[in-house]
């Protein structure tokens, strides 16, 4: 079937969905919501854990930096899909109390959501950790020394001197990681989460209108992309320091 807009039947989006949830436009919208939901939850985990690990890697001493390095190497060298399956299939069976709670007390959708969010969160945290580390390092040893020389202890040096500037520097790379999480959320379709790519597959399977479905979803991903980038540019402008052009 040739890919001409004229040859495609766009009315299928207004037909009722097979699961009775409304028309197919709404069906895709549900997918869109779950994509955002799992991506944002994953991002919160990624930002918090990633910041901690990134800070660990820049601390003096040996134990914490090594822990940080181990974390990053483990989560960067196992494929995302494998990590997802480990969260969804292995963690509930192996981990004693939390695992049984996961298996028995949560409904399937929540299980898929939680596994997806945890997987995306911890996977992306490794990448965020690297950004945070490189942001802190780009400030040079002088800022840390200046903070210490004034009598700040290490937590104060990070909180007052290093992190406020480091985070400003890495806004562009953090944005790109957020976009990555949104794209990576598609792997959750493999465990049945009804995010956008899964909905597009279902739509195709039930109506055989694959091209329309895929085109709509591809456009939606593109729109999300552009929106996030625009917001990021505003955030960058808003937090910019007068006269300052990045680290030394």
């Amino acid at each position: 079937m040739p890919i001409l807009a004229a040859g495609l039947d766009w009315s299928i989006f207004f037909q009722p969905a097979f699961d009775g949830s409304g028309n197919y436009l709404r069906f895709l919208f549900v997918g869109f919501q779950w994509t955002l939901f799992v991506a944002v939850t994953g991002w919160i985990i990624a930002f918090v854990v990633g910041s901690i690990v990134g800070v660990f890697r820049t601390l003096p001493g040996r134990v914490l930096p090594t822990l940080g390095t181990v974390y990053v190497e483990v989560f960067r060298n196992i494929p995302l899909l494998v990590q997802l399956f480990l969260w969804y299939f292995v963690f509930p069976d192996i981990v004693p109390h939390l695992g049984t709670w996961f298996k028995q007390s949560l409904n399937p959708l929540l299980q898929q959501f939680l596994a997806g969010a945890l997987c995306l969160g911890f996977f992306t945290a490794a990448r965020v950790a690297e950004q945070v580390r490189s942001g802190i390092n780009s400030l040079g040893a002088g800022q840390r020394a200046a903070g210490l020389a004034l009598g700040f202890n290490i937590p104060q040096v990070y909180r007052i001197v290093l992190l406020p500037v480091a985070y400003r520097i890495i806004i562009p790379t953090l944005t790109s990681e957020f976009l990555n999480i949104i794209k990576n959320s598609a792997v959750a379709s493999t465990i049945g989460l009804i995010e956008l790519s899964r909905q597009s597959q279902q739509l195709g399977e039930f109506t055989a209108h694959w091209y329309e479905s895929f085109i709509a979803v591809t456009l939606l991903y593109g729109i999300i992309n552009v929106t996030v980038m625009t917001i990021s540019r505003f955030v960058e402008k808003f937090t910019r320091l007068p006269g300052y052009v990045g680290g030394k």
């Binding site: 976009l179 794209k183 790519s197 597009s200 991903y221 593109g222």
Partner: peptide
């Protein structure tokens, strides 16, 4: 701008 999963499906 699109997930690899979608590219594979496409």
């Amino acid at each position: 701008s699109i997930p690899l999963v979608m590219v594979l499906l496409w």
